[in-house]
C-alpha cells in the first residue's frame, strides 16, 4: 500500500523560497487535486518531488512508504515508484519512443522484458490512448503536438506502473477529445494500490477524473482543503480570495 507523505516542505529556486511549508499525504487508492493560480508553486512541488536539480529543498521531508526520497537520485525515485507526468515533455533527438520505453521499463522493473511481450504491451497501451503505432519509431516527443506529448506521458505512466503519479497540468493545452482520452488513461491507472496527485489550473479535468480531495495552493502552501465540492466553488468564485489569504499568511 503506497503512501506519499510531504511534511513541511520548503523549496527554493535560485535562493528564492517558492514552497513555504507544504503538508500533504497521498495514500493508495486516493486521488488528490492541487489547484491554484499561476505562480503559486504547484509545478515547483511536482519537480521537487521528482528531484529536479534546479529545485533546492531547504526544509521538510518527502517520504514514499516511510522512506525519504530526498536523498535519492532522480532515477532512483522513479524506480522507487514515483512518476511525474510533465507539463512540457522534453524532445530528445535520436532516441525513439520504443527504445526509450523499453529502457525505462527495464530500469524500473529491474529486468528486461522479453522483446515480444514488450512490443505487445506497448502496442496495446498505445491503442488504448489512441496513439498511432508509428509513433513507436519516432524520436521521443520530437515534432509531437501538445496533445500527443501528453498522451505519451500517460503511456509512460501506464507502462511504468508507479505507486504514486504526479500529473503536472497534464490537462493544459488539450482539446476535449484528447482530454477525455488522457482522463480515461488516468482512470485506468487509478486503483486501490496507486495514488494520484493531479496538479491543475482548471476544474475541467476534474469532471472526468473525480478527485477524493481538493487542495488549494497559494503563495507556496496549501491554504484550503476539502472534497470535490471545493473545486466547484473555485469554478464559480475563482482563486482571488485564496491568493489574498496566501499573501497575508
Amino acid at each position: 500500500m503506497a503512501t506519499l507523505e510531504i511534511r513541511d516542505l520548503h523549496v527554493s529556486v535560485e535562493d528564492k523560497e517558492i514552497l513555504r511549508g507544504v503538508d500533504l499525504t497521498v495514500k493508495a487508492g486516493e486521488t488528490h487535486a492541487i489547484m491554484g493560480p499561476n505562480g503559486s508553486g504547484k509545478s515547483t512541488l511536482a519537480y521537487a518531488i521528482a528531484g529536479h536539480p534546479k529545485y533546492t529543498v531547504t526544509g521538510g521531508e518527502v517520504l514514499l512508504d516511510g522512506e525519504s526520497v530526498l536523498e535519492m537520485s532522480v532515477d532512483a525515485r522513479a524506480r522507487a515508484g514515483l512518476f511525474l507526468a510533465m507539463q512540457y515533455p522534453v524532445e530528445v533527438p535520436g532516441v525513439s519512443v520504443s527504445n526509450f520505453l523499453r529502457t525505462a521499463v527495464t530500469a524500473v522493473r529491474g529486468e528486461a522484458p522479453k522483446l515480444r511481450d514488450f512490443a505487445k504491451e506497448m502496442r496495446s497501451a498505445m491503442a488504448e490512448l489512441q496513439i498511432d503505432p508509428a509513433f513507436a519509431q519516432r524520436n521521443l516527443n520530437e515534432g509531437f503536438s501538445g496533445g500527443e506529448k501528453k498522451r505519451h506521458e500517460i503511456l509512460q505512466m501506464e507502462m511504468l506502473k508507479p505507486k504514486v503519479a504526479v500529473l503536472d497540468e497534464t490537462d493544459s493545452g488539450l482539446d476535449i477529445d484528447a482530454l477525455k482520452v488522457v482522463s480515461e488513461g488516468v482512470n485506468r491507472f487509478r486503483s486501490g494500490d496507486t495514488g494520484v496527485l493531479l496538479i491543475t489550473h482548471y476544474t475541467r479535468i476534474l469532471r472526468y477524473v473525480k478527485p477524493d480531495f481538493v487542495h488549494v495552493f497559494a503563495a507556496g502552501r496549501i491554504v484550503e482543503q476539502g472534497g470535490p465540492e471545493l473545486a466547484e466553488l473555485l469554478e464559480t468564485e475563482g482563486y482571488e480570495k485564496f491568493t489574498k489569504a496566501g499573501a497575508s499568511a
Binding site: D75, R77, A78, M86, V92, F100, T103, A104, A107, V108
Partner: peptide
C-alpha cells in the same frame, strides 16, 4: 532529467542522449 525521471540511470541516460 527527463530520462532519469523515468527510472533510467544517469550513465544510461547520458549514453542514450
Amino acid at each position: 532529467f527527463y530520462l532519469q525521471a523515468r527510472g533510467i540511470p544517469y550513465d544510461t541516460a547520458r549514453r542514450m542522449v
